[in-house]
Design a protein around this nucleic acid. Structure first.
Ligand SMILES: [Mn+2]
Ligand SMILES: [Mn+2]
Ligand SMILES: [Zn+2]
Ligand SMILES: [Zn+2]
Lengths: 146, 146
DNA sequence: CATGTAGTTGCAACCAATTGCAATTATCAT
DNA sequence: ATGATAATTGCAATTGGTTGCAACTACATG
Protein backbone atom coordinates (compact mmCIF):
# COMPACT_ATOMS: atom_id res chain seq x y z
CA UNK A 1 0.00 0.00 0.00
CA UNK A 2 2.05 2.92 1.31
CA UNK A 3 5.61 2.93 0.08
CA UNK A 4 6.93 2.94 3.65
CA UNK A 5 6.17 -0.70 4.46
CA UNK A 6 9.85 -1.57 4.87
CA UNK A 7 10.40 1.27 7.28
CA UNK A 8 7.27 0.32 9.22
CA UNK A 9 8.70 -3.17 9.61
CA UNK A 10 11.99 -1.80 10.88
CA UNK A 11 10.17 0.36 13.38
CA UNK A 12 8.02 -2.51 14.70
CA UNK A 13 10.83 -5.04 14.97
CA UNK A 14 12.85 -2.57 17.01
CA UNK A 15 10.03 -1.99 19.48
CA UNK A 16 8.73 1.26 18.02
CA UNK A 17 5.26 2.18 16.86
CA UNK A 18 4.28 3.25 13.38
CA UNK A 19 2.11 6.24 14.27
CA UNK A 20 0.43 8.49 11.70
CA UNK A 21 2.68 11.36 12.76
CA UNK A 22 5.74 9.27 12.09
CA UNK A 23 4.47 8.18 8.71
CA UNK A 24 3.93 11.79 7.71
CA UNK A 25 7.43 12.76 8.86
CA UNK A 26 8.81 9.77 6.98
CA UNK A 27 6.93 10.84 3.88
CA UNK A 28 8.35 14.34 4.08
CA UNK A 29 11.87 12.94 4.32
CA UNK A 30 11.50 10.43 1.51
CA UNK A 31 9.68 12.57 -0.97
CA UNK A 32 11.12 15.95 -0.08
CA UNK A 33 14.51 16.20 -1.70
CA UNK A 34 17.90 16.44 -0.06
CA UNK A 35 18.59 18.20 3.19
CA UNK A 36 15.59 19.26 5.24
CA UNK A 37 15.44 21.21 8.48
CA UNK A 38 13.15 20.18 11.33
CA UNK A 39 11.12 23.34 10.66
CA UNK A 40 10.63 22.39 7.01
CA UNK A 41 9.49 18.91 7.93
CA UNK A 42 7.25 20.37 10.61
CA UNK A 43 5.66 22.73 8.08
CA UNK A 44 4.97 19.97 5.63
CA UNK A 45 3.40 17.69 8.23
CA UNK A 46 1.40 20.53 9.71
CA UNK A 47 -0.22 21.24 6.35
CA UNK A 48 -1.77 17.78 6.50
CA UNK A 49 -2.34 17.48 10.24
CA UNK A 50 -2.30 20.78 12.13
CA UNK A 51 -2.06 19.35 15.64
CA UNK A 52 1.46 17.95 15.45
CA UNK A 53 3.98 19.44 17.78
CA UNK A 54 7.54 20.31 16.84
CA UNK A 55 8.75 18.09 19.69
CA UNK A 56 7.17 15.11 17.97
CA UNK A 57 9.14 15.95 14.85
CA UNK A 58 12.40 16.11 16.79
CA UNK A 59 11.66 12.94 18.70
CA UNK A 60 10.82 11.07 15.52
CA UNK A 61 13.97 12.32 13.85
CA UNK A 62 15.76 11.04 16.94
CA UNK A 63 14.47 7.50 16.53
CA UNK A 64 15.05 7.49 12.77
CA UNK A 65 18.58 8.62 13.43
CA UNK A 66 19.11 5.89 16.01
CA UNK A 67 17.93 3.37 13.43
CA UNK A 68 20.31 5.06 10.95
CA UNK A 69 17.50 5.69 8.48
CA UNK A 70 18.19 9.42 8.48
CA UNK A 71 21.38 11.38 8.94
CA UNK A 72 21.63 14.50 11.06
CA UNK A 73 24.18 17.02 9.88
CA UNK A 74 25.32 20.48 10.82
CA UNK A 75 26.06 22.11 7.47
CA UNK A 76 26.91 25.41 9.11
CA UNK A 77 23.66 27.09 8.12
CA UNK A 78 22.40 27.60 11.66
CA UNK A 79 19.73 24.90 11.57
CA UNK A 80 20.58 21.22 11.70
CA UNK A 81 19.62 19.32 8.54
CA UNK A 82 18.25 15.83 8.09
CA UNK A 83 18.50 13.59 5.06
CA UNK A 84 17.09 10.19 4.25
CA UNK A 85 19.99 7.71 4.09
CA UNK A 86 19.97 5.76 0.85
CA UNK A 87 22.55 3.01 0.85
CA UNK A 88 23.07 3.31 -2.90
CA UNK A 89 23.63 7.04 -2.93
CA UNK A 90 25.80 7.49 0.13
CA UNK A 91 27.76 10.68 -0.04
CA UNK A 92 29.31 13.44 2.05
CA UNK A 93 29.90 17.15 1.64
CA UNK A 94 32.80 19.57 1.45
CA UNK A 95 31.86 23.04 2.68
CA UNK A 96 34.05 26.10 2.14
CA UNK A 97 34.35 28.18 5.28
CA UNK A 98 35.14 31.23 3.17
CA UNK A 99 32.56 31.25 0.36
CA UNK A 100 30.12 28.66 1.80
CA UNK A 101 30.19 26.62 -1.41
CA UNK A 102 28.92 23.08 -0.85
CA UNK A 103 30.06 20.16 -2.99
CA UNK A 104 29.63 16.42 -2.72
CA UNK A 105 32.33 13.97 -1.73
CA UNK A 106 32.20 10.40 -2.89
CA UNK A 107 31.56 7.89 -0.13
CA UNK A 108 34.61 5.86 -1.11
CA UNK A 109 37.01 8.21 0.72
CA UNK A 110 35.28 7.59 4.00
CA UNK A 111 34.67 3.94 3.30
CA UNK A 112 38.44 3.50 3.07
CA UNK A 113 39.06 5.48 6.23
CA UNK A 114 36.42 3.41 8.01
CA UNK A 115 38.02 0.15 6.89
CA UNK A 116 41.42 1.25 8.16
CA UNK A 117 40.07 2.29 11.54
CA UNK A 118 38.11 -0.94 11.80
CA UNK A 119 41.14 -3.06 10.87
CA UNK A 120 43.46 -1.41 13.35
CA UNK A 121 41.21 -0.78 16.33
CA UNK A 122 38.09 -2.92 15.93
CA UNK A 123 35.94 0.21 16.15
CA UNK A 124 33.32 0.33 13.39
CA UNK A 125 32.57 3.95 12.50
CA UNK A 126 29.16 5.13 11.34
CA UNK A 127 29.95 7.00 8.16
CA UNK A 128 26.50 7.98 7.05
CA UNK A 129 26.77 11.63 6.01
CA UNK A 130 29.67 13.89 6.93
CA UNK A 131 30.09 17.62 6.48
CA UNK A 132 33.77 18.47 6.14
CA UNK A 133 34.65 22.13 6.41
CA UNK A 134 37.71 23.72 4.85
CA UNK A 135 38.85 25.97 2.03
CA UNK A 136 37.77 25.34 -1.56
CA UNK A 137 40.42 25.46 -4.29
CA UNK A 138 39.45 28.95 -5.39
CA UNK A 139 39.48 30.46 -1.91
CA UNK A 140 42.70 28.67 -1.01
CA UNK A 141 44.52 30.10 -4.03
CA UNK A 142 43.26 33.58 -3.22
CA UNK A 143 44.43 33.19 0.38
CA UNK A 144 47.86 31.95 -0.68
CA UNK A 145 48.47 35.05 -2.78
CA UNK A 146 48.70 37.18 0.38
CA UNK B 1 55.07 38.19 30.74
CA UNK B 2 51.83 36.25 30.41
CA UNK B 3 52.23 33.04 28.48
CA UNK B 4 49.65 34.12 25.91
CA UNK B 5 51.83 36.60 24.04
CA UNK B 6 51.75 34.56 20.83
CA UNK B 7 47.99 34.38 20.89
CA UNK B 8 47.74 38.09 21.60
CA UNK B 9 49.83 38.70 18.51
CA UNK B 10 47.58 36.51 16.40
CA UNK B 11 44.53 38.35 17.68
CA UNK B 12 45.98 41.80 16.96
CA UNK B 13 47.28 40.99 13.50
CA UNK B 14 43.87 39.68 12.51
CA UNK B 15 42.14 42.86 13.61
CA UNK B 16 40.92 41.65 16.99
CA UNK B 17 41.46 43.10 20.43
CA UNK B 18 43.15 41.37 23.33
CA UNK B 19 40.63 42.21 26.05
CA UNK B 20 40.94 41.04 29.67
CA UNK B 21 37.87 38.85 29.20
CA UNK B 22 39.48 37.15 26.25
CA UNK B 23 42.72 36.60 28.10
CA UNK B 24 40.85 34.94 30.95
CA UNK B 25 38.95 32.69 28.55
CA UNK B 26 42.21 31.85 26.82
CA UNK B 27 43.77 31.02 30.16
CA UNK B 28 40.93 28.68 31.05
CA UNK B 29 41.37 26.86 27.74
CA UNK B 30 45.14 26.58 27.91
CA UNK B 31 45.48 25.64 31.53
CA UNK B 32 42.27 23.72 31.99
CA UNK B 33 42.79 20.26 30.57
CA UNK B 34 41.13 18.67 27.58
CA UNK B 35 37.54 19.25 26.58
CA UNK B 36 35.74 22.11 28.25
CA UNK B 37 32.15 23.24 27.92
CA UNK B 38 31.21 26.89 27.58
CA UNK B 39 29.64 26.68 31.04
CA UNK B 40 32.86 25.38 32.56
CA UNK B 41 34.90 28.16 30.98
CA UNK B 42 32.29 30.68 32.06
CA UNK B 43 32.47 29.42 35.64
CA UNK B 44 36.22 29.67 35.75
CA UNK B 45 36.29 33.19 34.34
CA UNK B 46 33.46 34.29 36.59
CA UNK B 47 35.42 33.27 39.67
CA UNK B 48 38.01 35.88 38.76
CA UNK B 49 35.75 38.51 37.22
CA UNK B 50 32.07 38.20 38.15
CA UNK B 51 30.69 40.59 35.54
CA UNK B 52 31.42 38.55 32.43
CA UNK B 53 28.46 37.43 30.42
CA UNK B 54 28.05 33.99 28.92
CA UNK B 55 27.56 35.63 25.52
CA UNK B 56 31.09 37.03 25.74
CA UNK B 57 32.36 33.50 26.31
CA UNK B 58 30.52 32.19 23.26
CA UNK B 59 31.62 35.11 21.12
CA UNK B 60 35.25 34.68 22.16
CA UNK B 61 35.08 30.96 21.46
CA UNK B 62 33.70 31.94 18.07
CA UNK B 63 36.70 34.10 17.18
CA UNK B 64 39.19 31.57 18.55
CA UNK B 65 37.50 28.94 16.44
CA UNK B 66 37.68 31.15 13.33
CA UNK B 67 41.39 31.56 13.98
CA UNK B 68 41.56 27.78 14.44
CA UNK B 69 43.12 28.15 17.87
CA UNK B 70 40.35 26.12 19.49
CA UNK B 71 38.24 23.28 18.16
CA UNK B 72 34.51 23.01 18.72
CA UNK B 73 33.20 19.48 18.93
CA UNK B 74 29.92 17.74 19.64
CA UNK B 75 30.95 14.68 21.62
CA UNK B 76 27.36 13.60 22.11
CA UNK B 77 27.19 14.71 25.74
CA UNK B 78 24.55 17.37 25.20
CA UNK B 79 26.89 20.34 25.57
CA UNK B 80 29.34 21.34 22.88
CA UNK B 81 32.98 21.05 23.97
CA UNK B 82 35.97 23.23 23.18
CA UNK B 83 39.62 22.26 23.19
CA UNK B 84 42.80 24.23 22.64
CA UNK B 85 44.35 23.07 19.36
CA UNK B 86 47.97 22.08 19.82
CA UNK B 87 49.64 21.36 16.51
CA UNK B 88 51.94 18.77 18.09
CA UNK B 89 49.21 16.83 19.79
CA UNK B 90 46.54 16.77 17.13
CA UNK B 91 44.12 13.95 17.64
CA UNK B 92 40.53 12.88 17.15
CA UNK B 93 38.07 10.69 19.00
CA UNK B 94 36.12 7.51 18.46
CA UNK B 95 32.90 7.44 20.47
CA UNK B 96 30.81 4.31 20.92
CA UNK B 97 27.13 4.98 20.41
CA UNK B 98 26.28 1.98 22.56
CA UNK B 99 28.50 2.27 25.66
CA UNK B 100 29.65 5.89 25.22
CA UNK B 101 33.31 4.90 25.54
CA UNK B 102 35.61 7.60 24.16
CA UNK B 103 39.04 6.77 22.75
CA UNK B 104 41.61 8.77 20.84
CA UNK B 105 42.39 8.39 17.17
CA UNK B 106 45.77 9.30 15.81
CA UNK B 107 45.76 12.32 13.55
CA UNK B 108 47.54 10.41 10.78
CA UNK B 109 44.32 8.74 9.60
CA UNK B 110 42.73 12.07 8.90
CA UNK B 111 45.91 13.62 7.59
CA UNK B 112 45.93 10.95 4.89
CA UNK B 113 42.27 11.46 4.08
CA UNK B 114 42.87 15.20 3.88
CA UNK B 115 45.80 14.77 1.51
CA UNK B 116 43.72 12.56 -0.79
CA UNK B 117 40.84 15.00 -0.89
CA UNK B 118 43.20 17.89 -1.49
CA UNK B 119 45.01 16.06 -4.30
CA UNK B 120 41.86 15.09 -6.13
CA UNK B 121 39.63 18.12 -5.63
CA UNK B 122 41.82 21.03 -4.52
CA UNK B 123 39.67 21.42 -1.41
CA UNK B 124 41.76 21.71 1.76
CA UNK B 125 39.85 20.27 4.70
CA UNK B 126 40.20 21.58 8.24
CA UNK B 127 40.93 18.48 10.25
CA UNK B 128 41.38 19.94 13.67
CA UNK B 129 39.43 17.67 15.99
CA UNK B 130 36.84 15.16 14.84
CA UNK B 131 34.41 13.06 16.84
CA UNK B 132 33.60 9.87 14.97
CA UNK B 133 30.66 7.88 16.28
CA UNK B 134 30.24 4.15 15.81
CA UNK B 135 30.40 0.82 17.64
CA UNK B 136 33.45 -0.12 19.71
CA UNK B 137 34.91 -3.61 19.25
CA UNK B 138 33.25 -4.95 22.39
CA UNK B 139 29.78 -3.66 21.57
CA UNK B 140 30.08 -4.75 17.95
CA UNK B 141 30.91 -8.32 18.93
CA UNK B 142 28.00 -8.40 21.36
CA UNK B 143 25.68 -7.08 18.65
CA UNK B 144 26.88 -9.64 16.11
CA UNK B 145 26.03 -12.53 18.43
CA UNK B 146 22.30 -11.80 18.01
C1' DC C 1 50.25 61.25 25.49
C1' DA C 2 45.78 62.55 23.38
C1' DT C 3 42.24 61.25 20.23
C1' DG C 4 39.29 58.85 16.71
C1' DT C 5 37.43 54.70 15.57
C1' DA C 6 36.48 49.98 14.93
C1' DG C 7 35.86 46.19 17.75
C1' DT C 8 33.92 44.48 22.05
C1' DT C 9 30.99 44.06 26.10
C1' DG C 10 26.83 43.27 29.07
C1' DC C 11 22.26 43.04 28.94
C1' DA C 12 17.80 41.57 27.43
C1' DA C 13 15.24 39.40 24.13
C1' DC C 14 15.22 35.70 21.27
C1' DC C 15 15.54 31.07 18.84
C1' DA C 16 16.35 26.03 18.08
C1' DA C 17 16.08 22.00 20.42
C1' DT C 18 15.07 19.10 24.64
C1' DT C 19 12.52 17.36 28.55
C1' DG C 20 8.84 16.09 32.30
C1' DC C 21 4.39 14.80 32.49
C1' DA C 22 -0.43 13.31 32.13
C1' DA C 23 -3.39 11.76 28.56
C1' DT C 24 -3.62 8.90 24.54
C1' DT C 25 -2.80 5.11 21.32
C1' DA C 26 -0.48 1.22 18.64
C1' DT C 27 0.52 -3.26 19.24
C1' DC C 28 0.68 -7.87 21.21
C1' DA C 29 -1.21 -11.72 23.42
C1' DT C 30 -5.03 -13.69 24.61
C1' DA D 1 -12.38 -8.61 19.12
C1' DT D 2 -10.77 -7.19 23.82
C1' DG D 3 -7.78 -5.76 27.26
C1' DA D 4 -3.12 -4.96 29.18
C1' DT D 5 0.90 -2.60 28.48
C1' DA D 6 4.56 0.03 26.85
C1' DA D 7 5.41 3.56 23.61
C1' DT D 8 4.06 7.97 22.02
C1' DT D 9 1.87 12.41 21.84
C1' DG D 10 0.88 17.44 22.76
C1' DC D 11 1.70 20.78 25.78
C1' DA D 12 4.34 23.76 28.78
C1' DA D 13 8.46 24.70 30.77
C1' DT D 14 13.35 24.69 30.17
C1' DT D 15 18.05 24.72 28.32
C1' DG D 16 22.02 25.86 25.40
C1' DG D 17 23.30 29.10 22.42
C1' DT D 18 22.62 33.52 19.49
C1' DT D 19 21.65 38.30 18.37
C1' DG D 20 20.54 43.56 18.36
C1' DC D 21 21.87 47.35 20.54
C1' DA D 22 23.76 51.23 23.25
C1' DA D 23 27.67 51.98 26.16
C1' DC D 24 32.41 51.19 26.49
C1' DT D 25 37.43 50.29 25.47
C1' DA D 26 41.70 48.67 23.11
C1' DC D 27 44.74 50.29 20.17
C1' DA D 28 46.63 52.59 15.88
C1' DT D 29 47.94 56.96 14.52
C1' DG D 30 49.94 61.31 14.78
MN1 LIG E 1 23.74 15.23 1.57
MN1 LIG F 1 40.22 15.90 22.16
ZN1 LIG G 1 35.46 28.97 -1.14
ZN1 LIG H 1 30.84 0.28 23.09
Amino acid sequence: MSCETDTVKVLRTTGHKATPQRLMILGALRHGSGHLTAAEIFGEVQAEYPYVDISTVYRTLGVLKELRLVSETDMGTGDTTYEWVQQQERHHHLICRNCDEVTSLDHQYLEDLGAEIMAESGFKPDLDHFAIFGLCAKCRLEAEQN
